[in-house]
């Protein structure tokens, strides 16, 4: 009598699934680690523009990203620790995500590169990604570019992307934050004084 031909097929199909389930946590951990040591795409794009305009001889000093999951875990962990300063707790409460890169150049300080091209190119590239520049400063070798999301300009800001370069060091930050919590924290730190003078 012939055994049914299909009896062995289900066993062969199960193993890839089992293997996938075993490997999935490692893959997810790898993705998490990879995303934690790279900038998010908006910050990376801004970094590329600034580096292209100021010379590409930059090396990375620090680069990391923390998302809502990691920050949420940090908030939970900090809640069990008693000696954490209240300002630290408030920062954790206010910041929703952060992507930070610090870079240095080993050569001589750059005089600022082609600033006109940098501003135009950075604005075009960030506009394609949905960002509008709210602050642009260039003075000798110093450059500051600050972008906010274009959509919802009449609403309180909830994300920021900025680059600060002094010719020798470049800092790029993209962050998501809770506006009310951040405003309260800054107001207390600045003693309620507006930090801006035009």
């Amino acid at each position: 009598m012939n055994a049914p031909a299909t009896a062995s097929r289900p066993r062969h199909r199960i193993w890839p699934w089992i293997l996938g389930l075993i490997l999935m946590p490692f893959v997810m951990l790898g993705v998490l680690i990879a995303s934690a040591i790279h900038l998010n795409s908006d910050a990376a794009a801004l970094r590329r523009q600034v580096m292209a305009a100021t010379g590409n001889d930059w090396h990375t000093k620090v680069q990391f990203s923390v998302g809502p999951v990691l920050l949420g875990a940090a908030r939970t962990g900090v809640s069990f620790i008693h000696n954490v300063p209240p300002e630290a707790r408030e920062v954790l409460r206010a910041v929703r995500s952060a992507s930070v890169g610090v870079y240095a150049r080993s050569g001589a300080r750059d005089g600022g590169g082609r600033r006109d091209e940098l501003f135009a190119a950075a604005d075009r590239m960030m506009a394609r990604r949905g960002w509008t520049r709210i602050v642009g400063v260039a003075d000798t070798g110093d450059i500051v570019l600050i972008y906010l999301p274009t959509q919802g300009e009449d609403l309180q800001p909830s994300r920021v992307c900025l680059a600060v370069c002094n010719g020798r060091e470049l800092v790029v930050v993209a962050a998501g934050f809770e506006a009310t919590a951040l405003a309260g924290l800054v107001a207390r730190e600045m003693d309620g004084r507006l930090p801006v003078k035009l």
């Binding site: 400063v137 003075d139 919802g152 300009e153 107001a187 004084r193 507006l194």
Partner: peptide, 23 residues
Amino acid sequence: KFVEVNLSEGLLKFGSMFASKQE
């Protein structure tokens, strides 16, 4: 030197939150 600042309504309201108590 070059300085350009463009503050929208949302950002200005956000700034007013800093100063509402002291100023």
